[in-house]
Write a protein that binds this DNA or RNA. Structure first.
Length: 456
RNA sequence: GUGGUUGUAGCUCAGUUGGUUAGAGCGCCUGAUUGUGGUUCAGGAGGUCGUCGGUUCGAGACCGAUCUUCCACCCCA
C-alpha cells in the first residue's frame, strides 16, 4: 500500500450517517431561529487580519489561524526585521488575512459595513464553521461549527428573555431534556471587583472566579493573590464562596454584598427582571440557574452572560454560550449599538446526542427501494417505473451493473434499503413487479399502482 | 504555547529478556447457491509494524526527532 493520506489534526471527515445527523441538528436549530424571527446571513471564511486581531485578547490572537500572503512575501521584508526573529513584528508583515475565529466579530463588522442597509433592530442568525489553532481534546476541534443568533440595535431586556426561551425551544426540539442555562451579569462581576478594590483587575478576577467549581475555593484564592488582588479584598469575597439556594435567595445575598456599587445593583435589577419573566413564562425542559462564578467568554460582554451545560450524565464542556455586548460595533467605529446573542456548539451537541442515544431513527433519508439489474432490456424497463416513483418523492435507485443477484441483494442489505424490486423477463411479460421486503424476507407480486402504494 | 499519552491488516487488539517467513477475532473477496441478502460451511486476499534517523550480527520491540491520537494545563463551543 502506498503512504496513507491524512487530514490536519483537529479536523474531521464526516461519513453519510454523520452528515445526516449533523443536518438534523442544524435544521432543528434553524427552524427555531426562524420561528423566533431571525434571518440568516453568511460572511467569508477569512477576514482581514485587523478585523480579528486584538478582539479576543492575547490568548485569542495566538489561536487565530493566520493566512500567509501570496507571492514572494518575504522579499518585501527588511533583512533587519527578519534577523530579529520576532513573531509579533513579522506576522503582520507577511500575513494580512486570517480565518474566522467566531461568528460574533465578523457579524459586528457586517453590521458596521452595512449599517445603512440594515433595519434595526436586526435579528440575524448564522451557521458556519470557525477555526482555532488550539490543541484538540474531547469536544475541542480546530475546525468546528457555531450556530449563532444575535440581535443588534435594541437594549431591551426582553431579548435576553427570548434568548432563554430560544435555548429552551431548541434543546426541547432536540429531545435533549434537562440542560442547565446558567446566567450571570457582567455588571455584577464588575460590582464585586469594585467592592473588593480590584476594579482594575476585573479580567484576572473573573477568570480565577470562573474556575471555582473546577479547582475549588482555596486554589481560586491562591490564583487571585498571585494576580495581585489583596488578601483584604479576597476576605470580602467569602459570602460568594458559600453562595447557594435558589435564584431569589442568591439575589438577596448579592444585594447585600453589592449595596455600595451602583453598577452591581444595576446588574441585579437586570437579573431580577429576566428571572421574573421566565418564571411567569415557564421553560419547557431547561433549567435556568444563576451562577455568579460564570465568567467565561469574551471580554466584550457587558450585561447578561449565558452558558449552557449538558445534562450532568454526560461529561462535556459547555454546549452553548452568549451574552450582551453594549459596544461591540464600537471597535469598528459605530457607537451606541447594543447587541445580545447566543451560540450553539454543533459539534458538542452532536457528541451529547450520540452519548444519550437521542438521534431519531429517521434522520437518514436513505434509499427506500433498490431495483435489481437483470440486463439491458430489464434495466430500461425498471428505469421507467423508477422515474414514476421519484416523481412521487420515493427515493429509488437501480443497481448500475448486471451483477450477480447475491451481490446486488447484499448491497441493498448493507445499505439498509428496506425494499428490493425484481423485474425479469417473466415480470415484464406479466406486467408485474416482485417486491421483496428486506426486513421480513417476504415477497409479493404487485401491479404498478400497488407498488407505488406500498412504497409511499 | 506547557506537560503527559497513543500509533501493528479496513476495524478492535495480541506479539515473551531484541532472534527464522508478524498473528487472532470481526470485516472484505470467491465458492457451496447461474432469480434471492442476513445464518452456516469451505477457501482466499490484505502489513514499508505512523514516518525519518540511530544503536545492534540482528529492531514491531531499545534510543532520538517528527507527525498523529487521547488527556491535563492555558483558553474555549
Amino acid at each position: 500500500m502506498t503512504q496513507k493520506p491524512s487530514i490536519p489534526k483537529g479536523t474531521r471527515d464526516f461519513n453519510p450517517e454523520e452528515v445526516a445527523k449533523r443536518q438534523y441538528i442544524i435544521s432543528t436549530i434553524k427552524q427555531q431561529f426562524e420561528r423566533f424571527g431571525f434571518q440568516p446571513i453568511e460572511t467569508p471564511s477569512f477576514e482581514n487580519s485587523e478585523t480579528l486581531m486584538g478582539k479576543y485578547g492575547d490568548e485569542g490572537d495566538r489561536l487565530i489561524f493566520k493566512i500567509l500572503n501570496s507571492g514572494d512575501y518575504l522579499s518585501k521584508v527588511e533583512n533587519e526585521i527578519l534577523s530579529q526573529k520576532s513573531e509579533a513584528i513579522l506576522t503582520p508583515l507577511i500575513s494580512e488575512k486570517a480565518l474566522r475565529y467566531d461568528l460574533t466579530v465578523p457579524f459586528a463588522r457586517y453590521v458596521v459595513q452595512h449599517q445603512n442597509e440594515i433595519d434595526f433592530p436586526f435579528k440575524r442568525y448564522q451557521i458556519q464553521a470557525v477555526w482555532r489553532a488550539d490543541r484538540p481534546q474531547k469536544g475541542r476541534f480546530r475546525e468546528f461549527y457555531q450556530c449563532d443568533a444575535d440581535v443588534v440595535g435594541s437594549d431591551s431586556l426582553w431579548q435576553e428573555v427570548e434568548f432563554i426561551q430560544l435555548y429552551d425551544s431548541v434543546f426541547t426540539a432536540l429531545q435533549l431534556e434537562g440542560v442547565t442555562i446558567k446566567i450571570n451579569n457582567r455588571k455584577i462581576l464588575s460590582g464585586i471587583a469594585e467592592v473588593i478594590g480590584a476594579h482594575d483587575k476585573l479580567i484576572d478576577f473573573t477568570v480565577a472566579l470562573d474556575k471555582l467549581d473546577k479547582i475549588g475555593e482555596d486554589k481560586v484564592k491562591e490564583e487571585m493573590l498571585v494576580k495581585g488582588i489583596s488578601a483584604d479584598g479576597i476576605e470580602k469575597l467569602q459570602p460568594l464562596f458559600s453562595l447557594s439556594g435558589d435564584f431569589d435567595t442568591q439575589i438577596q445575598l448579592l444585594k447585600a454584598m453589592l449595596s455600595t456599587s451602583v453598577d452591581g445593583l444595576k446588574g441585579i435589577t437586570e437579573l431580577e427582571f429576566i428571572s421574573k419573566a421566565i418564571q411567569s413564562l415557564n421553560l419547557k425542559t431547561a433549567n435556568l440557574e444563576l451562577d455568579v462564578t460564570l465568567a467565561r467568554g469574551l471580554n466584550y460582554y457587558t450585561g447578561a452572560i449565558f452558558e449552557v451545560a449538558a445534562p450532568k450524565s454526560v461529561s462535556m464542556g459547555s454546549i452553548g454560550g452568549g451574552g450582551r455586548y453594549d459596544d461591540l460595533t464600537g471597535i469598528f467605529g459605530l457607537n451606541d449599538i447594543s447587541g445580545v446573542g447566543i451560540s450553539f456548539g454543533l459539534d458538542r451537541i452532536y457528541l451529547v446526542l450520540e452519548a444519550l442515544n437521542l438521534f431519531p431513527d429517521t434522520v437518514t433519508n436513505a434509499t427506500r427501494v433498490l431495483f435489481i439489474n437483470f440486463g439491458e432490456k430489464e434495466a430500461l424497463h425498471c428505469l421507467k417505473i423508477i422515474q414514476k416513483l421519484r416523481q412521487q418523492n420515493i427515493n429509488a435507485e437501480l443497481y448500475p451493473d448486471d451483477a450477480k443477484m447475491k451481490k446486488q441483494m447484499n448491497y441493498a442489505n448493507k445499505r439498509n434499503i428496506p425494499y428490493v424490486v425484481l423485474v425479469g423477463e417473466a415480470e415484464i411479460n406479466a406486467n408485474s413487479f416482485t417486491l421483496k421486503n428486506m426486513i421480513s424476507g417476504t415477497q409479493d407480486s404487485l401491479s404498478e399502482s400497488d407498488l407505488i402504494k406500498v412504497l409511499q
